[in-house]
Amino acid sequence: MKRVAAALGGFLLLGASAVMADQKIAVEQDNLMRAQGKSMYAIIGKMVKGDIPYEQKAVDDAIADLEQNVAKISTVFTPNPKEQVKDATYGSSQKIWENKKDFDSKIPPVQKAIADVKGKIKDIDGLKVAFKSINDRCSDCHETYRLKLK
């Protein structure tokens, strides 16, 4: 009886460890996408809408952050956490891991859109063009691989 209880306890600990590991992976993926969302929408998007004033340094920093973070997508999304972040608004579709090659193919066009505008944005009109170009490439992936949870 003690052996059965010990074995069952071991399986429960293993299961809990796997769930915690999956949640850690899901949170890492979510944090990466949130960082990109901050640069894209909380900074660039708000400037484009006129919600915050145009500021060149903030634009340059946001573009640099996007460039750095987009390069991490394929690696960060290699493990499949098989669960969503608790209380998240958006999550990752299992389609990512069912068709990882297609998912990964969406990254270079985003990188190209960023590279095409980097260092060339000098005013709000240029920022509007850059925002649309980058956002359109982001949407190519989001339409297939992002889930609205709430």
Rank of each mutant, 00 (worst) to 15 (best):
I96N: 08
I134S: 11
K148D: 09
K112R: 10
V19I: 13
K100E: 06
K128F: 06
L8F: 14
F11I: 14
D65S: 15
D65G: 08
I43A: 09
S17W: 12
A16S: 13
D65M: 13
S139I: 11
L32F: 02
G50A: 11
D51I: 02
Y145L: 06
K128C: 05
D116G: 05
F11M: 15
I73E: 07
T78S: 15
F131D: 09
P79F: 12
Y145S: 08
S105P: 00
A26R: 09
I52W: 06
G45C: 09
L12T: 05
K82F: 03
P81I: 11
Q29S: 09
F103R: 03
Q68K: 15
M33Q: 06
P53I: 05
P79C: 13
Y145F: 15
M20Q: 11
E98T: 12
Q111L: 14
K82D: 14
G119D: 04
I134F: 13
Q29G: 10
K150V: 11
D87K: 13
A21W: 11
R3C: 00
G119S: 03
G10R: 04
P109E: 01
D51S: 10
L147C: 05
K106D: 12
H142Y: 06
D104I: 03
I73F: 08
I73H: 05
Y90K: 12
D30C: 00
D51C: 04
K120C: 12
A6C: 01
S17I: 04
C141Q: 09
K2H: 01
V129M: 04
L127Q: 07
G126Q: 07
G37Y: 08
L14P: 06
T144H: 11
D104H: 03
T89A: 13
I134V: 15
V48F: 02
